[in-house]
Design a protein around this nucleic acid. Structure first.
Length: 392
DNA sequence: AGTTGCGGGCCCT
DNA sequence: AGGGCCCGCAACT
């Protein structure tokens, strides 16, 4: 089954990765190569028939992360973890936000949660939500395989996603948090109103200053504590302050990433990749730190990434020399690291930074990363969060 | 409440 | 046998 369409794909599969010698393996092979000379940066949006070899110390790889909504699939092989794509949740009315973006929600991974999710309404138009299943692998969902072998984590993707990208996990979490905050906010404003009424009856002076921040700006939401948790567990304050001027407001229309991304996707249904994208940057390990102002002004959700479908988002080894979350345990920062790859102007997303050409293998990862990148990580997230705004 | 991984089981080819 | 999928469970966040 699946054969015909796949065979051709399998052929490109073997050349999908820049380091040709490494792609001769298959995840099902009894023995996987151990003479790996080059490991890959984590790919946030693996697509098509690609293979990657990550360091076993790469936290994202360890967690089998993907920005696609992947659910675990039992393949009755405990050595190989298999996941299949759940697609994307779209608005049944095919509505667009005021700035032209489409609604691409992340399907809940848990079956029950997903059913519950589908009973909810479109956050934009209140229309029904619709789950767009992934059928990119011969009519079946795209599957991802993970296998830990020695010092490496082997990743293989089968199938090309035939649907737009959903929100990343972080965005979905952020949206939930915003929703919670919104709920809490309404509840607390009612309480406050009552308190004020009582106070006015008793003659006590209300203390506006004591009211929650931004009450006067109903469109701007206070970041709830739990929301902050989603943003970062370690180091977001500085960035919040550094960006707050803009971030506290909904992004201006036109800085659309959602529709742009969708457009890109629809224009290049499945093979609109830029195969050489990842090779564009063969230079230094950290060549692509975008101008800092960009972080606030333009970056937003993953959709803003100038991605061509399949231009794999790459998680920089964000995290510190060993990609282990030294600048933020949670995926947040690691996810956001994809922002770092962004050049000031749309270009293949992952490409430039996704890989250290000839990067030494483990043992000298100290060469990767360092310095600059981490500084900007949070910018992306904070901005991301506020760019979820139109979806409220 | 939701995510993730595991594994039993069923169905289909 | 291999792949897809459903289900429940447990650990974790």
């Amino acid at each position: 089954m699946l054969k015909g369409a796949d065979e051709a794909a399998v052929e490109q599969e073997n050349s999908a990765s820049p380091h040709g010698e490494m792609t001769s393996w298959d995840i099902n092979d009894i023995k996987l190569p151990q003479d790996v000379r080059q490991i890959d940066w984590f790919q946030e949006w693996p697509d098509s028939y690609v293979k990657h070899i990550y360091s076993s110390e790469d936290k994202n790889a360890q967690r089998h992360h993907s920005s696609w909504a992947m659910r675990n699939t039992n393949n009755h092989n405990s050595r190989i973890l298999k996941k299949s794509c759940l697609g994307v949740v779209v608005c049944g009315n095919d509505c667009s936000t005021s700035d032209g973006r489409k609604i691409y929600l992340r399907p809940a991974i848990c079956d029950k949660a997903r059913q519950k999710q589908q009973r909810k309404c479109c956050p934009n138009c209140n229309g029904p939500l619709k789950l767009l299943s992934c059928r990119g692998h011969g009519g079946y969902p795209v599957t991802n395989f993970w296998r830990h072998e020695g010092q490496f984590i082997f990743f293989q993707s089968k199938g090309a996603h035939d649907h737009p990208r959903p929100e990343t996990k972080l965005e979905a979490e952020a949206r939930r948090s915003i929703h919670k905050a919104q709920t809490a906010f309404s509840a607390s404003s009612i309480r406050l109103k009552r308190i004020q009424e009582i106070e006015s009856l008793t003659g006590a002076m209300p203390m506006p200053e004591a009211l929650p921040l931004l009450l006067s700006k109903p469109d701007a939401y206070v970041i709830p504590a739990n929301f902050k948790g989603h943003l970062s567990k370690s180091s977001q304050e500085p960035t919040l302050s550094s960006c707050s001027g803009q971030l506290l407001y909904p992004r201006a229309a036109g800085e659309d990433e959602g529709s742009g991304e969708a457009l890109t996707w629809s224009q290049s249904p499945s093979l609109g990749r830029i195969p050489s994208a990842e090779r564009l940057c063969s230079g230094p390990a950290v060549p692509c730190t975008a101008p800092s102002h960009q972080h606030c002004a333009h970056f937003s959700t993953q959709h803003v990434l100038p991605v061509t479908k399949g231009g794999h988002g790459s998680f920089r080894p964000n995290t510190g020399p060993l990609g282990d979350g030294s600048c933020g345990e949670k995926s947040l920062l690691t996810y956001s690291s994809s922002c770092l790859s962004l050049p000031p102007y749309p270009a293949p997303q992952s490409g430039p930074c996704s890989r250290v050409s000839g990067a030494p293998l483990r043992g000298s990862e100290g060469d990767m990363s360092e310095g600059g990148p981490q500084v900007g990580l949070n910018y992306c997230h904070n901005d991301m969060v506020f760019n979820l705004y139109p979806l409220r």
